[in-house]
Design a protein around this nucleic acid. Structure first.
Length: 835
RNA sequence: GCGAGAGUGGCGGAAUUGGUAGACGCGCUGGAUUUAGGAUCCAGUUCCUCAACCGGAGUGGGGGUUCGAGUCCCCCCUUUCGCACCA
């Protein structure tokens, strides 16, 4: 269209972004500007990490946002004189790739590698400051060799083990899922209701690290509070007691976990989970046996989500058996009920209807007695007959034999101590966190380096025989067991121990295993003999800033910490935590406020945007819309303002440049400059301060706003001093380097400086020039603004007061009133309190 | 239900520690220039009242602390996210 042509012509005259951006991207790559040195001084190093990408197609707006944040920080840190490691790689194994490959009838590897090629090209077109010489792909043997190496170290320590048990099973994907991959009872990837299946699976014993994973959150002040809270809740540590009830007939122990041992005398029944193996050993009598069996079958068939429904009425079946309370020898009914969770505590509970809401509801339904053993305080008594719900607060123990009168935490301690002394109970800490189920019955993943031998059992593959390579097979349709099981060339091997016939483990690892340690491989990506040389790790670790979306709070970020601690324990790492600071950027949403996603079909392509407006305008638009942690509702309108700023202000700056051989370190004195020039100098320094603070906080929106203000106030015609004039221009260009890098390099070169602007020092503000000589002080009457007075910057109260009372308006307000108080906040306000 | 955030003009958002609410930008209104503009420049733009000045109200609602509250405290509403029978 004719109109568009005109606009293009105009902009091209001044700044042809396509040529300029390509030019600098080539320069960056040719010069190796972002290739980090091997082992820098740890004090001068900065490890900038963004969550690597799942290559499911080309990159989208969310990626774009994530990476430009990391890019801006990288460039800023370089200007602060840091050696920066800023790598990138691909989380290449996994279900989505396999599913996509099946749908397109191609091999997952081909699909994955072609996606990587496309995305890499896009990232290079965006000019992100990655050190491409360190790129990694988790599905390549030279990478997963060390995924397997870590697995074997875990195996040696007993932290990787197999057990039979109920697992989350996705019937659609035909594979096991970790608890972290089940969202609201559904498969995180495909949304199918997850079923329970009794299977032998590999697990990582992350529960051994539960305490440390919780405690060490306190050592992470620069992690967002919400992520820490989510992790704490997910780990779910609770302190209580384990108390051994016994089955009346057999005397078999029936331990239960409780956080409220102080309510032990209020137990009126017991309940076990339908999954409980105890039920098999009870020798139930005919009528009860049938009912219990029927109930168990039904309960197990229901999904977790149905069972967990709070609105659902609790139900259960009496087993006909009784249990004995060790504290008072009392006999209580033993029930099976599906509100008892098999996977938590001992899979059995002591039920105290008087003081637990769930037990109360259950007891009411089945007419089981309710007993009060806690009173709110000495003067407030409860009556079981009048209660409409359980009293669950702490209080005073009553009807509890020798424990009567004990209160709250003290009561809990003494009751548990008693149980311990009598050897029928003990203090106990319990966790919600369960071991990480890591084996997957799918093809596209890292093979498990274990060989199963009839004679020798689970035999690890020797380190020198790693990697166990994933065979390239053509049939990898999911069928409920690993497709690898049907590949005899892969499966059949000699046992490394006895040399007899043996079979490989047919499963592959959860992709989250691959992504739990990738940040370490970047440090030493081409090392064939070791995961990473330890001294190199010392140069860079821990990661200084880790940027990604909030979605990984209880999955990846927990595994990531677990692996780091494990590798620390086996001596590879010095640090206890992988990343000092974590930053979660906000989502990118469409105009309706919905998150952009492929499935919703509302994605805006960053590639198209960049082709039309250029990388720098796109970056500035994204940065300017909102601070990095908040969601962005993407709109092209955002670009209008930054585009004007770039073309009319920034690009135009160069026209006023005077080539004065500017001294960037020079601090001016007021006496050196005219009043107008001094005001500009102050503005420049205020801007440097503001931009620095904003960039430090990743609030690029206010950094851009400050630069807009500065360039608005600057005009070359009005600036008398050449040195000052050029300082304003050059420092503006420097401050722009993290935000609009191509533009900044171009202008830096036009000013006659050597490549690269990133080698120049980030501007420092002149502390003597951040306040103007004359300032406005607000004058308030009773806290209401009534007037402002202009005074010298260091004015004392006397001066401000005199100026204020000169005003007829103020005089009017205080006339025939009594001045009660006068408050002066230097440089800000003067408040007169009258009555 | 529990836990953690958030709620500021027509819109995106500013306002480290309590100290002139609405920076910066979009949009809108008026003007200039132009054959024309979705270009550029200038002015205005929280709401109410007013010709104007002056004044009044104002950061989801209600209360409180304070000379002074968007910011701190209490109650409530809305909303986002997380967890969801964890004994």
């Amino acid at each position: 269209m004719a109109g568009d042509m005109t606009i293009d012509e105009k902009t091209n005259q001044r700044y042809d972004f396509q040529t300029v951006e390509k030019k600098w991207q080539q320069r960056w790559i040719e010069s190796g500007l972002f290739e980090a040195e091997e082992s820098p001084d740890p004090d001068k190093s900065f490890y900038m990490l963004e969550m690597f990408a799942y290559p499911s197609g080309d990159i989208h707006m969310g990626h774009f946002r994530n990476y430009i944040i990391g890019d801006a920080v990288t460039r800023y840190q370089m200007m602060l004189g840091k050696t920066v490691l800023h790598p990138f790689g691909w989380d290449a194994f996994g279900l989505p790739a396999e599913r996509a490959a099946i749908a397109r009838n191609i091999h997952p590897q081909d699909w994955t590698l072609s996606n990587i090629a496309v995305s890499r090209k896009t990232l290079q077109k965006v000019g992100i400051s990655y050190d491409w010489s360190r790129e990694i792909v988790t599905s390549e043997p030279d990478y997963y060799k060390f995924t397997q190496w870590i697995f074997l170290r875990m195996f040696e320590k007993g932290l990787a083990y197999r057990k039979r048990g109920f697992v989350n099973w996705c019937p659609e994907d035909k594979t096991v899922l970790a608890n972290e991959q089940v969202v609201q009872g559904k498969c995180e990837r495909c949304g199918t209701l997850v079923e329970k299946k009794d299977q032998v699976q590999w697990y990582f014993k992350i529960t051994d690290y539960a305490d440390r994973l919780t405690d060490d959150l306190d050592k992470l002040p620069d992690w967002p509070e919400n992520v820490k809270t989510m992790q704490r809740e997910w780990i779910g540590r609770s302190y209580g007691a384990e108390i051994d009830f016994t089955v009346e007939e057999t005397g078999e122990k029936l331990p239960v976990f409780t956080t409220r041992p102080d309510t032990i005398f209020g137990v009126t029944f017991m309940a076990v989970a339908p999954e409980s193996e105890l039920l098999d050993s009870l020798n139930l009598d005919g009528e009860f046996a049938a009912k219990v069996a029927e109930y168990r079958r039904k309960a197990l068939a229901r999904s977790d989500i149905e069972r967990a429904s709070v609105t659902e009425e609790k139900d259960g079946v009496f087993t006909g058996k009784y249990a004995i309370n060790p504290f008072n020898g009392e006999k209580v009914q033993l029930w099976v009920a599906d509100y008892v969770l098999a996977g938590y505590g001992t899979g059995a509970v002591m039920a105290v209807p008087g003081h637990d809401t769930r037990d109360f509801a259950f007891a009411r339904k089945y007419h089981i007695p309710i007993k009060v053993v806690i009173h709110p305080d000495k003067d407030t008594k409860l009556d079981a007959k009048e209660m409409t719900d359980a009293y669950t607060e702490y209080g005073v123990m009553v009807n509890s034999a020798e424990f009567d009168g004990l209160v709250g935490k003290d009561a809990i301690r003494k009751v548990t101590d008693h149980a311990e002394a009598k050897q029928f109970g003990r203090h106990k800490v319990n966790f919600k966190l369960k071991d990480w189920s890591l084996s997957r019955q799918r093809y596209w993943g890292c093979p498990i380096p274990i060989i199963h031998c009839q004679k020798c059992g689970e035999v690890p593959v020797a380190d020198e025989n790693l990697p166990v390579e994933l065979p390239k097979v053509t049939n990898f349709q999911p069928k409920g067991r690993s497709p690898l099981a049907d590949v005899p060339e892969y499966m059949n091997v000699a046992c490394p121990k006895c040399g007899g016939d043996a079979r490989r483990d047919p499963d592959t690892m959860d992709t989250f295993v691959c992504s739990s340690w990738y940040y370490l491989r970047y440090i030493d990506p081409h090392n064939e003999n070791a995961l990473m040389e330890k001294p190199k790790g010392k140069s860079w670790l821990p990661v200084d800033l880790y940027v990604g979306g909030i979605t990984h709070a209880t999955g990846h970020l927990l595994y990531f910490r677990f692996f780091h601690k494990f590798l620390h324990d086996i001596g590879l790492l010095d640090s206890l935590e992988p990343a000092t600071k974590l930053f979660n950027h906000g989502m990118v949403c469409d105009g309706k406020g919905e998150v952009m996603s492929k499935s919703k079909g509302n994605v805006v392509s960053p590639i198209e945007l960049i082709d039309q407006r250029g990388v720098d305008i796109s970056r500035l638009g994204m940065f300017f819309t909102a601070p990095s942690e908040r969601e962005v509702i993407w709109s092209e309108d955002t670009l209008t303002g930054v585009e004007k700023f770039v073309y009319n202000k920034i690009v135009a700056l160069i026209e006023g440049y005077r080539s004065s051989a500017v001294d960037l370190k020079r601090y001016f004195k007021h006496a050196d400059l005219s009043d107008d020039d001094w005001a500009l100098y102050v503005k420049l320094n205020q801007t440097i301060k503001k931009v620095t603070e904003s960039v430090e906080r990743l609030q690029f929106n206010t950094a851009i706003a400050a630069l807009m203000e500065l360039t608005r106030d600057y005009s070359p015609d009005k600036t008398a001093d050449d040195g000052l004039n050029d300082q304003v221009i050059v420092k503006t260009i420097q401050m722009l380097a993290p935000l609009a890098p191509h533009l900044s390099e171009e202008l830096w070169e036009k000013c006659g400086f050597e490549f690269s602007v990133l080698h120049s020092d980030w501007p420092q503000f002149d502390p003597d020039a951040i306040v103007t000589d004359l300032i406005n002080v607000a004058v308030q009457i009773n806290g209401k603004l009534r007037h402002t007075v202009q005074v010298v910057a260091d004015a004392d109260q006397e001066l401000v007061e005199a100026a204020a009372f000169e005003s007829p308006k103020i005089q009017q307000y205080v006339a025939d009133k009594t001045i009660v108080k006068k408050i002066y906040v230097p440089g800000r306000i003067f408040n007169i309190v009258v009555r």
